[in-house]
Design a protein around this nucleic acid. Sequence first.
DNA 1: ACATTAAGTGATT
DNA 2: AATCACTTAATGT
Length: 210
Amino acid sequence: MIKSMNWKEIFPDFEPPLLLEMEHFAVINNFAEDDVLIDIGEPVVFVPLLLEGYVKIIREDKNDGEHLLYYLEKGAVCALSISCCFDHKKSEIKAIAETSGRVAKIPIGKMDEWMARFSGFRNFVLQSYNRRLQEMLVAIDSLAFLNLEERIVKYLRDKKQINNSRFIETTHQEMAADLNTSRVVVSRLLKKMEADKKIKINRKSIEFLD
DNA sequence: ACATTAAGTGATT
DNA sequence: AATCACTTAATGT
């Protein structure tokens, strides 16, 4: 179903022999919006490469709610899954499909092998790691240094970017969960932002006026 | 018409 | 900024 043309397009630096092996060993899965791709505590047996779509990566504490860390985009590999894989650990995060899309699941054993044999693959993994680390810093910064209203603005900006639309389809409840706060507080701040002409609130969607 | 879900609000901590 | 205890509004059956 997936031709090497597609692979080459998404992963331009992969060597042709690597692409051939990938087509053979990778398991392709389609997923729909809101699918839970992995949850906390589930064993990680594959390293997922995102072929299409966006995935929300969420850190969750059993008692203390959850927090959105960052989004994974097409052509990215989940850095956290790699570290989990190497140690045969269980997942530290929850991954939810922001949009529908496709993943290629790489068996753990192949990761070692391909990183050793293909410099294109090794560089890809390292770069991907790097990007995730950067995004993690951004997530920490926003938690540590931004107030809730600023975090909401950032949240809406990110979502706007991903969906490529100034109409953000979400509920106050969902935002509160992602930002680890309460719905009432989100509603109030959004109301204020609407009064300030920054956004327009509709039921189950928000229009971002930049 | 009734139930469910999303969002708004005042009062309190 | 969080929580409570509602109310109101929109949607689904």
